[in-house]
Design a binder for these strands. Sequence first.
DNA 1: CTCTGTATTTTGATTGATCAAAATGTTGAT
DNA 2: ATCAACATTTTGATCAATCAAAATACAGAG
Lengths: 232, 232
Amino acid sequence: MFSSTVENYLKAILLHGEESGAGVMPPGALAEALDVSPGTVTTMVKALAEQGLLSHKPRAGVKLTKSGRAAAVRVLRKHRLVETFLVSALKMDWAGVHEEAEALEHAVSDRVLEKIDELLGHPAVDPHGDPIPNARGELAGGGGVGERLTLASCDVKTQWRVARIHDQAPAFLDFIRDTGLKPGARVRVVRRDEAGGVVRCEVKGEGGAGGAGGAGEAVLGLGEAGKIEVRK
Amino acid sequence: MFSSTVENYLKAILLHGEESGAGVMPPGALAEALDVSPGTVTTMVKALAEQGLLSHKPRAGVKLTKSGRAAAVRVLRKHRLVETFLVSALKMDWAGVHEEAEALEHAVSDRVLEKIDELLGHPAVDPHGDPIPNARGELAGGGGVGERLTLASCDVKTQWRVARIHDQAPAFLDFIRDTGLKPGARVRVVRRDEAGGVVRCEVKGEGGAGGAGGAGEAVLGLGEAGKIEVRK
DNA sequence: CTCTGTATTTTGATTGATCAAAATGTTGAT
DNA sequence: ATCAACATTTTGATCAATCAAAATACAGAG
């Protein structure tokens, strides 16, 4: 239907809206997200607007149209279902699946996707805790970055459960795996030093099936702590 | 590593060699196989020769180099393992998986591929009976089109087993599915009318698990019969 | 040996996606 | 109100992959 380039533009715009809450994405942010030059974005954006996938207010930013958003949501569904599939069905390492899914999301047909969805039992979230849009194109909204409850903002001493990791960088994900702070893990902030920018916490493993279960300690920066969303 | 265009050129040349036995493929056949114009082939072939993937004797044809063949075999391995995966793991319909695999073969990484291979238990053939190259890049040779034993050349009255379908066209595959002549089925040629170009045979279902098992009759043209390889 | 038909290569152009560098518009500080 | 700093758009080029149509080489018939 669309080239993978087009799909990547749409997905980046959707993701920006989800993360930032802003309805409009500035060209510079898009260039940054896609790792292309600003001029390239201007050119592509004009073409996509032509196709009715987004609206473009010159010098301000872009916004997905209804059909653009629908296409973007389909791509995101593919991405997240594929990630889940790689981890659950193929037992691949958690930290690497994002890049694999990045390539596969453009090659998986709708027919294959629905078979995968079925095989996995219609999962609601992917291995990072990110919500998977359903087949009807509905995406559970996660609340903007501001009101998020994370290891940087949650109550100290209370026990929480890791709900979602807001970063796909392999190095960070490796760190998360090593500390045991994966979605599902139970965690308690032991001490948060705002001045020093350090958060120290106690991790209690998976609780459910599988994981090592043993308790451990994790120390991380405030910025990093802010990427770990907790709940309950 | 290579663009999907390049991968398709290499795969087409390898497949031509396997099917025809000829070591060299004329540009016209390549254009036909890839559904591009002859001029395009000339251009691309020069570029691929530049990269050391094939050797090009002007006005005669192309031949894969060692490294070109290795790359082609990797692509073929991906294609056939993906097909097997789609049928065995995702329970997709036999007849459609070729086109799906056509897209996925360029997006599946080596890491993902080996996980799939493992999951499937290192299968030796794909759902059409085509041999799957192993991880070391060895491809079981199938014998040229001449010496092949097929429903067009096998003994009448003897019972055979369908080994391989030498055609990926969806319409033909649909026909095969409907008649039950899939790899694994037992079959006996009841009558072969060379003059009329018609082969009539009796099909006995899967034998093993799954299939309907009941006997049925299939009537097909001599050309079509020649695409159904039998053994034993 | 010549000619003709077919396969192949050349030529000139197009499309999608990209870049670097120059030009331009906008915003915020003074 | 002016100007500097920065973001955005324009401009002119490039690269990979393709096409249609013209030019060319070759092989077999005579």
